[in-house]
Each structure stands twice: as C-alpha cells, then as structure tokens.
C-alpha cells in the first residue's frame, strides 16, 4: 500500500507542476516575449485588431483549459483516494499516462497555433536587411561532448540491455515487444537528431535574432539530451520493475518522470535570461 500512497502524493505534485505552475510560468514568459513584438509590425499584420484584448482573450482561454485539466486531475485524485486497491492493478499505470496526455493537450493547441502563425507570418515579415553571424555552428557549441558521448553510450547500453532481456535471461521478454521498445527509443533519438539539426541549420523563426536563436537552441539541445536520457531510464525501469516484483511502483515511477519533465520545461522558461527587446525600426526598415 505504501507505493499507492507514494503515487498519490506524486500525482498531486504532477497536477501542481504541469497544470498550475507551468502554465503560470509559460504565460509570464509569453507576455514578456509578446511585449518585445513591435507594435508597428502587429498593426501591419493585423490591421484594426486590439492587440491587448486579443492577447488577453487568448491567454485567458489557455489558462482556463489548464484549470479544467487541473480540476479533472483533482477529481481523479479524489476517486483514486477512495479506491486505493485499484492502484495495485497493472492498469494503474494508465492513470498518470493518460492524465499527462490530457495535461499537454493545451500545449499541442499552442504549438499548432504557433506553427500556423509562423507559416502565415513568414512571407509578411521579409526583412530587407538580413544579418547572420559568420561563424560555423556545431553541436558542441550547444551541448558538451561529454553529454553527447553519454547519450550515445546510453543508447548502446539500452540496446545491449534489451538484447540481454530478449535472448540471454532465463525469463525472456517476447522479441516482438523488445523490438517495439527498441524501435520506439531509436525513433525518439532520430527525431531528436532531426529536430536539433533543424534548429541549428534550418530557417530562422520570423523576428528571431541570432542571439535568441543561439540561446533557445542551446536550451532545447540540452533539454532534449536530458529528455532522451530520462526516457531511456524510464523505459528500462518500466521493463525491470515488474520482473523484480515491484510492479506496484510503476505508477509512481511514471508520475515522477512526468514531474521531472514538467520541471525541466519550467526551468527552460527563464524570463530573465531571454534576449532584450527589439525596435520596430529594425524590423520595418
């Protein structure tokens, strides 16, 4: 029963971290970034629209979506407190997973909205004077070689561990499941590599300065390396815990993972480290 109560405590932290603290920090960060967006450019792009009102309406809806998710989380928490025996079952791992998917759903909406804006805005924000830093960018400008070596080593260790579990151990896991897990983790690593490549060498986000780009790419690179390492550790724990007779700790493990992910996002949204404001003349010259 101890693991069930540990999970409930961690689930409360999960609700607080991703549905209360993170949105508040994100909105604060977005407002600072919004203030940097020149009024003249906004008026050119959206003539006749009250900027303050539009922004306020958008963020109110975003905050409301997170509040609804937080309330749903509290309802779920209350239900689980009344039915603690359910947490001992194998399907209990679904609670933190599905709830986390619910927690990130407003973020998907935000990402979709942001990408749509970038796609629409890009042609309108063609700047006549374009600048670039005449310096070659490389992965090691953002992440230390040690971290990269660690990540590659972790991947190969994971592959070796999965092969061991599939073919060497006395109680092997089915090869199909093993290869599915290997495929999922490999896909995650490839996706991360593509994302980093795009951030380092792809087209700039409209109105993003070189300094901002370097800063955000650095944060994303470090964050994604940390994220993939954490994911590999999680997958290993998900496979290992039931084999050690500790299946009851799986919900707690997953919930802890989601809390760490939330805190990582939270840490990256540091308003003070964001680049300073830009003038409208710089954009509309």
């Amino acid at each position: 029963m101890f693991e069930a109560y540990a999970f409930l405590a961690m689930f409360t932290v999960q609700i607080l971290a991703f549905s209360v603290l993170f949105p508040a920090r994100l909105i604060g960060y977005a407002r600072v970034k919004e203030a940097e967006f020149p009024d003249a450019v906004f008026e050119k792009l959206y003539p006749g629209i009250d900027r303050q009102l539009a922004s306020q309406r958008f963020w109110t809806r975003f905050r409301a979506a997170h509040r609804v998710v937080a309330v749903l989380g509290l309802v779920l928490l209350g239900w689980m407190l009344g039915n603690v025996q359910v947490l001992g079952q194998a399907r209990a791992i679904m609670f933190p997973v599905f709830y986390f998917l619910l927690q990130v759903s407003p973020m998907f909406f935000l990402a979709f909205y942001g990408l749509r804006q970038i796609t629409v805005l890009r042609p309108s924000l063609q700047v006549p004077r374009r600048t670039a830093v005449l310096q070659r960018r490389g992965l090691f400008d953002f992440v230390s070689p040690l971290r990269v070596i660690l990540e590659v080593s972790i991947y190969f260790l994971f592959v070796a561990f999965m092969l061991y579990l599939m073919y060497v151990t006395k109680d092997p896991i089915p090869a199909l499941i093993g290869y599915q897990m290997l495929g999922a983790v490999t896909f995650g690593f490839v996706l991360q590599a593509c994302w980093l490549y795009w951030r380092m060498y792809g087209r700039k986000v409209p109105l993003e300065t070189d300094a901002e780009r370097m800063r955000t790419t650095g944060l994303q690179a470090k964050g994604s390396v940390f994220g993939t390492l954490l994911t590999v550790v999680l997958v290993c724990l998900v496979i290992t815990l039931p084999r050690l007779g500790l299946q009851g700790w799986l919900p707690f493990t997953l919930s802890t993972f989601f809390v760490i992910v939330s805190l990582q996002f939270f840490r990256n949204l540091n308003v003070e480290k964001a680049a300073g404001p830009r003038s409208s003349s710089e954009v509309l010259s």
């Binding site: 374009r130 670039a132 830093v133 005449l134 310096q135 070659r136 960018r137 087209r203 700039k204």
Partner: peptide, 25 residues
C-alpha cells in the same frame, strides 16, 4: 573582413546551407 583582420587564416566559415538559411537566401 579578411582585409580588416576580423577573419584570420584558418578561421572556419559557416556551411552554405547554414548561411543561406540564416540570410534567407
């Protein structure tokens, strides 16, 4: 930049893809 000494012999330059994307060319 080379004449002014800002770029020195052996300094690395960005790749074609990087510079083209940064300058939107």
């Amino acid at each position: 930049a080379v004449t002014a000494g800002v770029l020195k012999p052996g300094d690395s330059l960005p790749s074609i893809r990087q510079l083209a994307n940064d300058l939107e060319l």
